[in-house]
Design a protein around this nucleic acid. Sequence first.
RNA 1: GGCCCCAUCGUCUAGGGGUUAGGACACAAGCUUUUCAAGCUUGCGACCGGGGUUCGAAUCCCCGUGGGGCUACCA
Length: 495
Amino acid sequence: MSSRETIVNGAVRVRFAPSPTGALHLGGARTALFNWLFAKHFDGTFVLRIEDTDQERSTQEAVETILKGLSWLGIYWEEGPRDGGPFEPYFQTQRLHIYKKYAEQLIKEGKAYYCYCTTDELKKEREKAAKNKAAPKYNKKCRFLNAEDAKELHVSRRNKVLRFKMPEEGKTIFNDLCRGEVKFENELLDDFIIMKSDGFPTYNFAAVVDDHLMEISHVIRGDDHLSNTPRQIQIYQAFGWNPPHFGHIPMILGKDKARLSKRHGAQSVTEYAKEGFLPEAMVNFLARLGWGHKDQEIFSRKELIELFTLDKVTNSPAVFDSDKLTWLNSHYIKESLPERIFDLALPYLEKAYPKLKLDDKDAAGIAYLKKVITVLQERLRLITDIVPASEYFFKDITSYDEKAAAKHFKGEETTKILEDLKRSLSELKTFDKPSIEDVFKGLAEKLKVKLGGVIHPARLALTGRAVTPGMYDVIEVLGKEKVIERLEKAIKFMG
RNA sequence: GGCCCCAUCGUCUAGGGGUUAGGACACAAGCUUUUCAAGCUUGCGACCGGGGUUCGAAUCCCCGUGGGGCUACCA
């Protein structure tokens, strides 16, 4: 059996455990997605746990945006905040008594000890080590304190932390589901802190206690945790617990190949939502960052669940390319039902064109808007593109594109063409696309000009622009009245 | 500094001893057309370097180099 093979015996239970210190960024979202796909693939359970033990940086607001982000992506949790579950609570700050209990067990068994060193002392030690180009390791001063000194310090120093007694020899070896065998010398691992002086556990301790208690079978997380894994395995061993399987997925980097940060622009998934991206585009995009299946680029959610396995996860970090995301987004917009695009676009349109203010009774307004969206839908890359693209459907023409005007609004023939067009269109009984097309073709033939000779001036007259969807579509949607009115205005403009 | 991970077109990736090293985004050209997109066709473009192992290495091994991570009373 290869070390990369995913070993599954018993129920699959995975977790996504973000710390609420900021929004759900792309890296976190991808980790959540891989966990979720893995769970769904094996018919397992996806647990959401909030690791809010950093009192300084955790916020309730961040919790909300993370939940919102996951929901937007369609990543739902069987256990976690809101609905709870059999292993609640799912907020670490509500589990303090649990960590305390297990920490005490380790003290009792001599596997952890109090450390009374002050932050200043530790800092000085580290600086000294750096100067000597030595490993900035804790000197284990408090590990070997005699009973008397310990008792005295316990009283005199009110700030104390709990440190884990790391074995001083041997190796910690584990099989990573993505990387294969990974080894660490225990001697190089520090006696790291498991309980802070404020009584809160540190990440490496809380995560282990929770993963064990919550019966997590597979820990799938970012590469940045690979070096933490031996420390955590040592804790499992100290308790006599079986560690879960670990799978470390590559991180997502910015264009400069540096860790994702604010410098890389919009990074939170909710921001992408606001910018007009569709969740399925984001899911598809994220899935292809560090994972692939043959030559395929487009994956439905169902396909992802079927095809996703950890052995197909890449090992190298991925730089995210927003062009590809945009391409996927335009693909999914084209595929969407117009009704959905309508729902998604409406808030942006109402904001941009206050006169629009649709209410449920405005059947004509709704019908018009739906036609506008249908005509524009396949050219949108982002939902928000609808606003600039639809301007002439909602506002009167106040100016004509200069370059296009110089080209298409010149000569008496043009005036004549537009006058002719106006007359023919106004005589139309059924104002639909085929009839409109007939008018244009007939006119071109009659006047012995190319079709473009009619269409280009018409486009400019009716939209003020050089670039629009198909002319017949635009005319049909605008409706006879507006079309005639705009043609008149253009004729007048040309003098 | 120490330890760990990683390395195929600009980017995302397929390929895991013998391939014309495949696909996608982006870019360029052509076709189509009613403008612009879209679509279709074509083009451009990569195995980090050096040593081994082997008949044969992008693929396996070692060493370098580069990037990333951990080394916090952050997670």
